[in-house]
């Protein structure tokens, strides 16, 4: 309900804004304002929602609206990637995280304390100010904008139709180092995840073969080690083979 009210109010405000201020810029600007307004409202909803899953859902809506903004910018490949990575993977993992760490339904989790929110708010505002200043003070901002309009229709169409290719070439040539660094970071987190997911004691056991990665696939070797270590002999009778 809150979501609906917020979004509808946002659309109304955005529409008014469109009529009052951006009248002369045509329909594109209006669409932008609507999407951006809804996105901001969703972001606010993410922060304010009491229920963590609702919060995550607001975040999903926000990601989706950002993807819409990408489409407005004719960067459809980025939009698709946005949906794929953030909605398809990040949001799902987020919800999984909520369900596995807190109570399984995730709806008794509430954080009221102002003291806890204050640092987050300060960081967020600081980040916002930083970005705003950076965007405003970028020296060739207006120049780049006019330059961007300049390329020929053919080049533009080539970029639009071959965006992944152009993007890939750019990433592997101009932005090669950051790209590789991000890869390194991801690998490190992957290794860390594998290490975290190991059952207790299995890293030191070592003698009976390589432990299988991922705890979702519960293989009997973990248990066998537990049996050998004598961590349970009578407390879990269901483990003893008939």
């Amino acid at each position: 309900m809150l979501l609906l009210m917020l979004v509808s109010a946002g659309m109304l405000v955005a529409g008014l804004w469109e009529i009052l201020i951006f009248r002369e810029f045509g329909p594109m600007r209006g669409v932008f304002v609507q999407i951006a307004g809804a996105a901001v409202l969703c972001a606010v909803g993410t922060v304010l929602a009491r229920n963590l899953i609702h919060s995550a859902l607001y975040l999903v809506a926000f990601f989706f609206l950002v993807a819409c903004l990408f489409i407005m910018l004719e960067a459809e490949f980025l939009a698709v990637m946005q949906v794929l990575v953030f909605i398809g993977a990040v949001a799902i993992l987020l919800m999984f995280g909520i369900m596995l760490t807190q109570d399984v339904q995730g709806d008794q989790v509430e954080a009221h304390s102002v003291l806890r929110r204050l640092p987050a708010a300060i960081v967020a505002i600081g980040l916002f100010v930083m970005l705003a200043v950076a965007v405003q003070q970028r020296p060739d901002f207006s120049k780049a904008r006019t330059e961007r309009a300049a390329p020929s229709v053919a080049a533009r169409e080539r970029v639009l139709n071959q965006m992944p290719q152009e993007l890939g070439l750019d990433l592997m040539q101009r932005w090669c180092l950051p790209f590789e660094l991000v890869g390194l970071l991801l690998t490190a987190s992957l290794v860390g995840a594998v290490a975290l997911a190991q059952p207790v004691g299995s890293l030191s056991a070592g003698s009976d073969g390589t432990p299988s990665p991922g705890s979702l696939t519960e293989t009997p070797e973990h248990l066998s080690r537990e049996v050998a270590g004598g961590t349970h002999s009578s407390s879990r009778p269901d483990l003893v083979s008939p």
Partner: peptide, 28 residues
């Protein structure tokens, strides 16, 4: 005819898992 049709397909099919998750979660 999307120029990036294959990632688009993957992206939209990943929405299904979100719907599936929400269906299970919201049912209590």
């Amino acid at each position: 005819d999307l120029p990036s049709g294959v990632p688009y397909l993957i992206a939209v099919s990943s929405i299904a898992s979100l719907g599936l998750f929400l269906a299970g979660w919201s049912s209590r």
